[in-house]
Amino acid sequence: MEEFFQQLLNGLAVGGIYALVALGYTMVYGVLKLINFAHGDLFTIGAYLGMTLLVSSGMAGSLSPLLVLLVVFIMVALLVALVGCLLERAAYRPLRKANRLSAVVSALGASIFFQNAVMLIYGARLYVYPEDWRPDFTVDILGFTVPGVRLLVIMASLLLMFALHSFIQRTRTGAAIRAVAIDQSAARLMGINVDRIISLVFLIGPGLGGAAGMMVGIYYGQIDFTMGWSYGLKAFTAAILGGIGNIPGAMLGGLLLGVIEALSSAYISMAWKDAIAFLVLILILIIRPTGLLGERVADKL
């Protein structure tokens, strides 16, 4: 029972991270019908930027660790959002009218570019996240001792998801994003500046992804430059699992995939952990390509 409970919480923490990355995929897919392969690498950039900022922050003694974490967290999200926005300008906007698969190839190129840029800047070795900032308190829940960092990650991801959901559903700008996702030309006729909305999506998605990258650094304590691929692919699996283009779907899919992965690595086999996510991906594409919550029937799938 103890192990099940711990694995469940672990799955929710990892799943929350997947969900944050999946939101970036799903929002971009929603407005551009493009799989942004470089998203996983923006996530890596977030993790590395977080590390650099934490190490070099001069706020060591004066502020409480949690506050420092929060400040760095916001800075990372903003910086990665900027990178994402620039990426859209440079690599995707010129291809907006072109064949959809050209944009996919460009996205792949961007992904390889970012991954190797990180490698050239930081080197190919594994990095350990600065220990000083890692929250090391524990909390008792129902008689089980749970590491505080696990709860923090779950709470932070849920909070961000909730904020995004209310932004998309409650505000005028959120309504504009939904409108662009449904029909770009109609949205343009209604006076929505489509280019601005697309830029905004490329700010929000990568921002959340970068924040998730830093959460991985804090949660696992180590990062390397290739992690974007595996997290990116799993987050994409999560987005498809929930129904791509569907924002609550990405959240549900992420949490579900995290829990599936944690439980199967605990009870089935640790060595096959990564294969299980891909198996889920293949099965969902064969059985129900629209995903769990995807009500919109994808064309010609």
Binding site: I35, R100, L233, F236, I240, A275, F278, P289
Partner: peptide, 28 residues
């Protein structure tokens, strides 16, 4: 056989999944 009808970018993702599964199977 089961995935050939998938559209462009979905097929791309599935084939990436296959190559990873094969590699993990070989390692295991």
């Amino acid at each position: 056989r089961p995935i050939i009808h998938l559209r462009g970018d979905y097929l791309l993702i599935v084939t990436i999944g296959i190559v990873e599964i094969v590699r993990i199977a070989l390692i295991n």
